[in-house]
Simulated scan of single mutants.
Amino acid sequence: MTTLEEKLGYQFQNRELLENALTHSSCANESRGKLQSNERLEFLGDSILGMVVADHLYRGHPDLPEGELTRVRAALVCEESLVEVAQALDLGSYLLLGKGEEAGGGRTRPSIQADAVEAVLAAVYLDGGIGSARKIIQKYILCREIEGIASPRDYKTALQELVQRESGQVLKYRLVGSQGPDHAKRFFVDVDLNGEPVGSGEGHSKKEAEQMAAKAAMAKLSKK
Rank of each mutant, 00 (worst) to 15 (best):
A133T: 05
V198G: 07
K206F: 08
D192F: 08
L95I: 03
K139S: 09
E5Y: 02
E16A: 06
D182T: 05
G106I: 09
Q160S: 10
C27G: 08
K139V: 02
S151R: 07
A216Q: 13
S178A: 09
L22W: 08
G195H: 00
G129A: 11
L64M: 14
S178N: 12
F12E: 10
N38Q: 12
V83H: 04
L69A: 01
Y94A: 09
G104D: 14
E79C: 07
G45W: 13
Y155I: 03
F43R: 14
V53Y: 12
L69S: 01
I136L: 15
L18I: 06
A213E: 15
A88C: 05
V52L: 15
M212R: 14
E208F: 05
L171V: 01
L159F: 07
Q87T: 06
G203L: 13
H24S: 10
V198K: 10
A28L: 07
I112R: 10
H24E: 15
A103M: 10
F187P: 12
A86P: 13
E196A: 08
S167V: 01
Q160E: 14
T2R: 09
A123D: 12
E30T: 04
F188D: 13
Y58V: 02
M218L: 15
S31R: 07
L22N: 06
T3E: 15
R73I: 01
E101V: 09
D127H: 05
E145K: 03
N14F: 04
Q11V: 13
E30G: 05
A219G: 12
E210N: 06
V83T: 00
A184G: 08
V85F: 01
M51R: 13
G98K: 01
T23S: 10
L35C: 09
Y58P: 02
P152F: 00
L41S: 06
L8K: 05
K220S: 04
Y125Q: 11
G98Y: 00
R73P: 00
T23D: 13
H61R: 15
Q13N: 11
V72F: 00
A213W: 06
L193K: 12
G148L: 06
L171Y: 04
D46R: 14
Q164E: 13
H61K: 09
L121V: 11
L193F: 04
D154H: 01
L121N: 05
K172V: 02
S151I: 06
R144K: 14
L162M: 13
A75I: 02
A184D: 15
E19G: 02
K99N: 03
E42C: 05
S47T: 05
M51C: 02
A54D: 11
Y125A: 12
S47D: 11
E208I: 01
C143I: 11
S178Q: 14
G105W: 12
L96P: 00
G128P: 15
A54H: 07
F188K: 11
G168L: 01
P62I: 00
V72R: 08
V53P: 05
M218D: 03
A184F: 04
V83E: 10
D182L: 09
I48N: 08
G148H: 01
E210M: 15
M51T: 07
E16W: 07
L8F: 11
V124H: 04
E202G: 05
K34L: 10
L64D: 10
G180V: 07
A122N: 11
A217E: 10
E30D: 11
L69E: 06
E79Y: 00
G128Y: 05
Q138S: 07
R15K: 14
Q160P: 04
M1I: 09
A158D: 12
A219M: 15
M51I: 00
Y125L: 08
